[in-house]
């Protein structure tokens, strides 16, 4: 279970317009949406953005339940944010006084807004990972970082590292399972003792895991060299996800949304 979870992230397979967008477009749109959320400064803006976010969820065919699963902790944060802002935000229109705390209308508005922003931000980010596999994300990231490689950002290397990590996570987890079983066969009890003792209990698990990881790294680097790997320069990318016109349209819409939010704030 853990293995599959890590491999697919929280990918929810479905055939929807959101799934079909290229990963690089979705990453850009997510960033734009987040910026817009923080640029917008009144209920019209926030409401519009929330509506756009919910529409995106509906179009994606990802059930609300799947999103909700990843949101539980975030909701606690949202409530905390709301409460903090509610009592801390300076304002003149006092609605209620509780001892030292004053509850103001400004605080209420601002607290609600902050909570909503945070909530929508996480919903939208979840939508990205729910509709895009980690491999597609890696690929999208490489495409986006490519221009930055001219100023020294190791775009190819970052993408390569992420992809190797994705490749080896399941293998290493399997290995970990095996090590746990083997040390249990030698009488190891991982749940015994106080915290210090428990940390110590992990030594027989972690040492072999690291030894194996280093050996793997060594083997893998030889295997890559043997296949003529020499970094990103001069390398073909076999599978390039083509930027489609629908990506352009989607990006344009969100840029428009951002422009609207900025205009509204400035005016």
């Amino acid at each position: 279970m853990l293995k599959e979870k890590l491999l697919l992230g929280q990918y929810y397979p479905a055939d929807s317009p959101v799934h079909r967008l290229t990963a690089s477009c979705k990453i850009l749109v997510t960033i734009i949406y987040m910026v817009a959320l923080f640029v917008a400064d009144d209920w019209l803006g926030w409401g519009l953005l929330a509506a756009v976010g919910l529409a995106a969820v509906l179009i994606s065919k990802v059930p609300f339940k799947a999103i909700w699963r990843g949101m539980k902790i975030i909701v606690i944060f949202c409530v905390l944010t709301f409460l903090l802002n509610l009592f801390m935000y300076p304002g003149d229109h006092v609605l209620l006084t509780l001892g030292r705390f004053r509850l103001t209308a400004e605080g209420l508005t601002y607290g609600l807004a902050m909570a909503l922003r945070l909530f929508m931000l996480v919903v939208f980010a979840s939508l990205l990972t729910l509709t895009t596999t980690p491999i597609q994300l890696t690929d999208g990231l490489e495409t986006l970082l490519k221009p930055a490689s001219r100023i020294g950002v190791p775009a190819h290397e970052i993408a390569m590292m992420m992809s190797i990590a994705l490749r080896f996570i399941p293998t290493i987890l399997e290995e970990f399972d095996r090590i746990v079983l083997a040390q249990r066969a030698r009488g190891a009890d991982l749940k015994q003792g106080n915290i210090a003792q428990r940390v110590k209990n992990f030594v027989p698990l972690l040492v072999p895991l690291f030894v194996a990881a280093f050996r793997r790294a060594d083997d893998l680097s030889q295997a890559m060299e043997a296949k003529c790997y020499r970094g990103g320069a001069g390398r073909t990318r076999w599978k390039v996800v083509k930027w489609q016109s629908r990506d352009t349209v989607c990006l344009a819409l969100f840029l428009l949304l951002l422009a609207g939010a900025i205009l509204e704030r400035v005016l």
Binding site: T171, R216, L220, K227, Y229, R230, R235, T236, W238, K239
Partner: peptide, 27 residues
């Protein structure tokens, strides 16, 4: 286990060819 680099069979077979800079269609 330690010599397959890519996350799928066909991507791994393509890995060497990508490194050689071979055109996409030929890969």
């Amino acid at each position: 286990d330690n010599q397959l680099v890519a996350t799928s069979v066909e991507d791994d077979i393509a890995f060497g060819l990508e490194n050689l800079g071979i055109p996409r269609e030929e890969i």
